[in-house]
C-alpha cells in the first residue's frame, strides 16, 4: 500500500521560536544564558532547562507542540511549529532528588558534595542560582561548623514546603480562572457556564497534580497524604454493577427456555464467513459491557427520597 503523502524525516532545525522574558536574554552582564540538560525530578529522564547569565536563575523549557503547525520566520519556513516557553523555575525542585537520595544515609553533608551526577554534570551549576543556598533550609536540617554548612534532607520540612507551594498554586489557579473541574478536556473549549461549583478539594487536587510534575512519585504520594486528600478510587470500582439484582423471595425461574438448543437435532450451523469489520469487532473485549437487550428492559424505578 502506497501512502499518498510521505513525510521526510525531520530536517535539522537551526532556529526555534521562544517566549522569553526580556530580562533573560539581556546579556549586558556576564555571559549568555545556556540550555542545559538536567534530570527531570518527576520522570528521572533528561529534560531541557536553561540557566540564565552567570547561572543566577533557572528556567524550565516547555514546548507547545501540536500537529499541523509550521512557522514562517522572516523569509524562511520552519516545518517545526513548536513554540518554546522559557519560564522561571525554583531550582530547589531539581536539587531535591539529590538531597532525597543522600538523605537515606542520614548524614549531614555539604551540598556541593551531593550535587554530583556523572550523567548530568551541569547539575552542580544549580548551586550558583541565587535562591538555591538561601532556600535549602526549606527542605533540609542545617548544621554550621565554622564557615561550612552541612545539610540533611528532612521529609517533614519538605512536606511543609510543598504544601505551601500547593497553597500558592491554588491561589494562582483561582486568580487565573483555570478550570480545575473534571470533564473539561481542552483549554480552547469555550465554557458557557462559569465553573463556580469547583470545590476547594478540586483546586487542591489540581494544584497537587501540577506540583507533582516537579517532584518524584514517592514525594507526590507523600504530599497527597500530607494534604489529607484521600487517594482517588479508580472509576471502574466506583461504577455501579451493570445489572441490578432483583430482590425477591420467589424461586428463580428461567426467563426463557434454552433447553431446546440442547436437543440432538439442533445442529450448530457452521459460522458464516465474517467480513473484515465483523472480525475486528469479534476481537473486542466484551467483558463489562451490557448486552444490547438490557437497554430495553423496563427500568427499575429509582427510589424516592
Amino acid at each position: 500500500m502506497a501512502t499518498k503523502k510521505k513525510r521526510a524525516p525531520n530536517g535539522e532545525n537551526d532556529s526555534w521560536v521562544a517566549m522569553v522574558a526580556d530580562s533573560v536574554i539581556d546579556t549586558q552582564n556576564s555571559g549568555d544564558p545556556t540550555f542545559v540538560r538536567l534530570k527531570n525530578p518527576s520522570t528521572d529522564t533528561a529534560s531541557l532547562y536553561m540557566l540564565g547569565k552567570g547561572d543566577l536563575q533557572l528556567y524550565e523549557v516547555k514546548a507547545f507542540e501540536e500537529e499541523f503547525h509550521s512557522w514562517f520566520i522572516g523569509q524562511t519556513v520552519q516545518r517545526d511549529g513548536k513554540l518554546l516557553f522559557i519560564t522561571q523555575m525554583d531550582p530547589l525542585y531539581l536539587i531535591l532528588p539529590y538531597l532525597v537520595k543522600s538523605g537515606k544515609e542520614g548524614k549531614f553533608q555539604p551540598v556541593s558534595q551531593l550535587l554530583m551526577d556523572e550523567e548530568f554534570p551541569a547539575c552542580s551549576r544549580l548551586l550558583s542560582c541565587t535562591s538555591s543556598s538561601a532556600s535549602l533550609h526549606h527542605v533540609t536540617d542545617e548544621k554550621e561548623v565554622g564557615s561550612l554548612k552541612f545539610h540533611r534532607y528532612s521529609q517533614e520540612k519538605t512536606m511543609n514546603w510543598l504544601k505551601k507551594k500547593v497553597d500558592r498554586t491554588v491561589v494562582a489557579l483561582k486568580k487565573r480562572n483555570i478550570s480545575v473541574g473534571g470533564g473539561v478536556k481542552s483549554s480552547t473549549y469555550i465554557r458557557v457556564k462559569s465553573e463556580s461549583h469547583c470545590s476547594e478539594e478540586d483546586y487542591l487536587r489540581y494544584a497537587h497534580g501540577l506540583i507533582s510534575e516537579y517532584i518524584s512519585d514517592d514525594l507526590s504520594k507523600a504530599l497527597l497524604t500530607h494534604l489529607q486528600l484521600p487517594e482517588l478510587t479508580s472509576p471502574k470500582e466506583a461504577e455501579p454493577p451493570s445489572k441490578k439484582r432483583k430482590i425477591s423471595d420467589q424461586p428463580v425461574e428461567a426467563g426463557e427456555d434454552y433447553s431446546k438448543f440442547n436437543s440432538a437435532d439442533f445442529a450448530r450451523k457452521p459460522p458464516k464467513k465474517m467480513t473484515a469489520a465483523q472480525k475486528t469487532l469479534a476481537k473486542v473485549d466484551k467483558s463489562g459491557m451490557k448486552p444490547m437487550s438490557s437497554f430495553f428492559n423496563p427500568k427499575v424505578k429509582a427510589e424516592k427520597k
Binding site: 532545525n13 526555534w16 540550555f35 540538560r37 527531570n40 518527576s42 520522570t43 529522564t45 533528561a46 529534560s47 531541557l48 523549557v61 516547555k62 514546548a63 507547545f64 507542540e65 501540536e66 518554546l84 516557553f85 483555570i178 473539561v184 478536556k185 481542552s186 483549554s187 489540581y206 497534580g209 501540577l210 507533582s212 510534575e213
Partner: peptide, 19 residues
Amino acid sequence: AHQAHRFFTERRLKNLDTL
C-alpha cells in the same frame, strides 16, 4: 511512560530533552 498533568496536556505543552 509518565503521563503529564492535564494542565500541560490540555495546553499541548511538553518537556523537551533536546532542542
